[in-house]
Amino acid sequence: MAGEKIITPPIKCQGIKTKLVPFIIENVQRDENGLWIEPFVGTGAVAFNIAPARALLCDKNRHIISFYQGIQNGIINSSTVRDFLEYHGSILEQRGGEYYLEMRSAFNQNYDPLYFLFLNRSDFNGMIRFNQKGEFNVPFCQKPHRFSKSYITKICNQVSRVSAAMSGRDWEFICCPWQNAFAGAAANDYIYLDPPYIGRDTSYVGEWSEEDAASLAGYAHQTPANVCLSMWKENQFRKNGHLFEYWSDFTWYEHSHYYHFGAKESNRHPMTEVLAIKR
């Protein structure tokens, strides 16, 4: 990985691990012949940069899985993305928020992965959120000129790099409950966990409760595979009690970084992240 540029996924979401990739790669020691497993693949930032030969990449969000399946089978590529974003981006520039809402309404009927990409890159703060009916409901970012030529090229390059990362590798993208990802895991496999924040319902896939988190810890301890949990440890306001209660017997590697909440510099706070590794 040294000297290589980190792959940034074309899909954005809050909590993306792109900036932590070097820290993760530095501490993950796995059997190259084993299966890399992610029950919460999200944007795919870790898998794309680890680049294992074999991987099982799961998520409960079917739209993310559908998008990456599209790249994998070649239906979605830099050319189709450019054509789509140039066409719809030019209309967005003319009609603004009205057209964004039309595209959002269309996506909630057709579930087209390119519509999903368009919304994800033109909505408020790159959020992924759905209402109780399963409809995407993030508002417009209020930037009608969002899809400039340079911005589209940036997204196309991200799609191309993700496609190259998948090429020649045995990867399977599956939409399923996280529990399914543990089934059949062997001793030489490696399970990377990046679960949702406990008790925070972002409507990405629904609320992640304390009971869910405790159940995940149980699965992680029982599986014969090695396990690496990525989770926040503490900030200046509070500590993560769940981490201390359920994962204290794993080996912890810590990394401090900053996160932003809002636009003001005063909202820039230090955060300690932990990789809790089974063995």
Rank of each mutant, 00 (worst) to 15 (best):
A2R: 12
K5Y: 00
I6L: 08
I6N: 07
I7R: 00
T8N: 08
P9I: 13
P9G: 02
P9Q: 05
C13M: 15
K17R: 00
V21I: 15
F23C: 00
N27C: 11
Q29D: 14
D31Y: 00
E32Y: 05
L35D: 04
W36K: 03
E38C: 06
G44E: 03
A45W: 14
F48M: 03
F48P: 07
F48L: 15
A51H: 05
P52V: 02
C58S: 07
C58R: 06
D59L: 06
K60G: 13
R62W: 01
H63C: 06
S66K: 04
Q69V: 01
I71V: 15
G74T: 08
I76N: 08
I76H: 03
F84I: 00
E86Q: 14
E86V: 10
L92K: 04
G97D: 14
Y100F: 12
E102D: 11
E102Q: 14
S105D: 14
S105I: 00
F107Q: 00
Q109S: 09
Y111L: 09
D112G: 08
D112R: 13
D112N: 11
P113Y: 06
Y115S: 11
Y115R: 10
F116N: 07
F118K: 09
L119P: 00
L119D: 04
R121T: 05
F130T: 04
N131V: 01
Q132D: 10
Q132L: 09
K133A: 11
K133P: 03
E135T: 06
V138N: 14
P139F: 06
F140C: 11
S150A: 15
S150Y: 00
I152F: 15
Q158H: 07
S160N: 01
S160L: 02
R161N: 07
R161G: 04
S163K: 15
A165G: 06
S167M: 06
S167E: 12
G168S: 08
F173Q: 01
F173G: 07
I174P: 02
C175S: 13
P177E: 12
W178A: 05
A181L: 02
A183F: 10
A183V: 15
A185C: 06
A186I: 09
N188C: 03
D189V: 03
L193M: 04
L193T: 09
I198V: 09
R200H: 09
T202G: 11
T202H: 07
Y204G: 01
G206P: 07
E210M: 08
E210T: 14
E211T: 01
L216E: 02
A225H: 00
N226V: 07
Q236E: 11
F237T: 08
F237A: 13
R238S: 12
N240E: 10
H242G: 03
H242P: 02
L243T: 11
L243C: 04
E245N: 12
Y246L: 13
W247K: 01
W247E: 07
W252A: 09
Y253G: 08
E254H: 14
S256M: 09
H257R: 01
H257K: 01
H260T: 08
F261S: 13
G262L: 02
A263P: 00
E265A: 11
V274E: 02
V274N: 04
I277G: 04
R279H: 11
